[in-house]
């Protein structure tokens, strides 16, 4: 797989605060990369650095295998972007906005504008002034502007910010079809996991400027599979006993045993084993965790990492 975006030790400091700290992002061809993190985690700063809008304090960025610092113009030719709020000229219609950008990018084919308007579902509203657009329409126009130059890489910063569920759904459907339709690689940031969950195949989670997770979305999902929690009076000795049996048992912060298997027979075997060892068994329960829980766990309390 070709690497589309690759950063090494990317860092941005403002005076004494480190906004982005040594992050190594890796996005491959055809990925929809979900870039997740709470507000203020450093998502937008990272994206601005990827577009060369601000200079990193330290570290390297490679896009399409080329160094961004030396090949900015050549790289930007193949990148479409939407940073934070969409930019558009409120005094122009949707069509004229795309036309203004078409002129800038020197795209000869005027039909491309209608094509884009159709893709983002604004064909019927193309002659309406953008200041009269709804928020969802503005966001879609922003994505349309980003798509106009037929980019190979699309970088979208919070494209669903402030949208209602229907609007989020529309954007999601639009983004999902891009890689298969045009072979575009997409990087999309958000602070809501469930949004990313349904379109991304790879996820990077940033918190306080640190990239704390980066892998396939399945790996993240696996973490949300149910587990069995057992509370006993002496968890340390219980752990030793069970480990002797070759069972993978962890302890959580409440000193409870955590077992990642939920097989009925196995659980009853464990219960029996613990009772035989004269330990008091207080509770056995199944814990179901949503992706949101994991996201919150990862971002709010790193120390309490029990995974």
């Amino acid at each position: 797989m070709t690497k589309i975006i690759e950063t090494s030790h990317l860092t941005k400091k403002y005076k004494n605060t480190t906004v982005v700290d040594e992050i190594n992002i890796s996005v491959e061809q055809g990925d929809i990369y979900g870039f997740l993190g709470p507000n203020g985690a450093g998502k937008t700063t990272t994206i601005r650095m990827l577009l060369g809008l601000i200079k990193p304090t330290k570290g390297d960025i490679k896009v399409f295998g080329k160094k961004l610092a030396d090949n900015r113009m050549a790289i930007l030719k193949e990148v479409g972007s939407l940073v934070e709020y969409p930019s558009f000229y409120a005094n122009l219609t949707g069509y004229e906005n795309l036309e203004a950008i078409r002129r800038l990018l020197r795209i000869e084919d005027k039909h491309r504008i209608n094509e884009i308007l159709r893709t983002v579902g604004l064909l019927n509203a193309k002659d309406k002034l953008v200041k009269n657009y709804s928020l969802g329409m503005k966001q879609r126009l922003g994505i349309g502007i980003a798509l106009l130059g037929s980019p190979n890489l699309l970088i979208l910063d919070e494209p669903t910010n402030g949208l209602d569920p229907a609007g989020i759904q529309e954007i999601r459907e639009l983004i999902k079809k891009l890689p298969s339709l045009y072979g575009i690689t997409v990087m999309i940031s958000s602070h809501i996991l469930s949004e990313i969950d349904q379109m991304a195949n790879k996820v990077g989670i940033i918190n306080n400027g640190n990239l704390i997770f980066q892998d396939r979305i399945e790996v993240l999902r696996k973490k949300s599979s149910p587990r069995i929690i057992i509370r006993v009076n002496d968890s340390e000795s219980a752990q030793t006993i069970l480990k002797k049996d070759g069972l993978n048992v962890a302890l959580n912060s409440k000193k409870e045993l955590v077992i990642n298997e939920i097989d009925d027979d196995l659980i009853s075997y464990i219960a029996e084993k613990l009772m035989m060892s004269r330990l008091s068994l207080y509770r056995i329960y199944e814990e179901k965790r949503s992706l949101e829980d994991i996201f919150l766990d990862l971002t709010t309390n790193k120390e309490r990492d029990i995974l």
């Binding site: 030719k77 934070e84 930019s87 800038l104």
Partner: peptide, 18 residues
Amino acid sequence: SLEHQNNSWKLLFALPIS
């Protein structure tokens, strides 16, 4: 202010244009 008001500097600067 056309560019300031519409937040479009960042859009323009992210284009492959000097």
